[in-house]
Design a protein around this nucleic acid. Sequence first.
DNA 1: AGGATTTTGTAGTGACCAATACAAAAAAAG
DNA 2: CTTTTTTTGTATTGGTCACTACAAAATCCT
Lengths: 198, 198
Amino acid sequence: MTNTKKVNSRGRPRTFDVDEAVGKAQALFHQRGYDAVSLADLTGALAINPPSFYAAFGSKADLYGRALERYAKTEGLDFDRLLAPERPLNEALAALFDAAAVAYTAHPEATGCLVIEGARGGTDAVACDKAKTLWRRSRQVVRDAIADRAADRADEITDYVMAILAGLSASARDGLGAARLRAIGRTASLAFMSDKAR
Amino acid sequence: MTNTKKVNSRGRPRTFDVDEAVGKAQALFHQRGYDAVSLADLTGALAINPPSFYAAFGSKADLYGRALERYAKTEGLDFDRLLAPERPLNEALAALFDAAAVAYTAHPEATGCLVIEGARGGTDAVACDKAKTLWRRSRQVVRDAIADRAADRADEITDYVMAILAGLSASARDGLGAARLRAIGRTASLAFMSDKAR
DNA sequence: AGGATTTTGTAGTGACCAATACAAAAAAAG
DNA sequence: CTTTTTTTGTATTGGTCACTACAAAATCCT
């Protein structure tokens, strides 16, 4: 109903841009992982003090959640496009693996998938759950797209596809470049080429 | 030359078995990951006090290194057997993936590969390096075995194999059981079945 | 101008972290 | 029995963690 963007708000104005700050936090979390980014790192990067941080974001885990959502929107794989219904399954999955290979190496010092790596958990259980939720949501989208073309083996193929994506993300973190990652993706999609994977 | 096992040593005797303690630490690290296991967790599980811990193991990271080596010896994949030279490549890789699927789900609450998950790093860089070293060593063993049968594409195939192993470990951590992991492994080995992966 | 509201900077909070100082205790060696 | 050596338990150490109490500052509304 009312304007969601804060305009003409009372009180002392913010000295930093919140959305921009979420972007910086996203980059930091992607580079080092949730645990390795301290609050001092964040407030330092944003050039603000802890009270401003907590007034704006609530907690470190909450900011992580916003960074995850921003990542999914801006850098995450576009499953709907890659797995569009008119595409044959083998072609769609090959395109998905190739897009992942490119996306996971797009930033040289922030490789891999923020969601996949975040879902693997560390010290903070609630932060890990936020990533796991997004990962499960991605899985569901993939499964739905596969079910249209191979309803009987949808779960089995989905398991395989998500494992390949996780393997690509891990390999990207290992230092493999886009070319080698794309080769992995091509090999992985061979399973669906000739014989329909029995 | 001299006896490596401490026998008839002077001084007050230890009240705990060091090798056994490494095993308990290995289990803890495997369940929760390096960062999530505190020194208090370790000393609590071993029923010893911090000074005994440091006298025996040097540091948390050093104990982690010993736990990694123990894991590689006792629970790690037997690459030499699985990739034995007389086996055809496709059969060897299928066996490797299947063995990984079983190994990574062998302990219900310590899933995945300790080395792979540890190499993905967290807060402690030196601990991460210890895991990365073992992971690279495994990669070299795999590459050598592949090079015997497909010298030209050894690097490419090795990239793929290590990515599959990482994907299997991640999927195991995701909660997938042995059966679903084995299905992933079977699909992954299809790439080498009919057409020699062009 | 004056009151209401919100963010700011300063300066901490207790909790937990890995790692130790120190002296008593327990064994072998002389 | 005394000395030497090693491990033990008690009690901390300094450092870092995520998070806040508090009051001054900066804006809008009346």
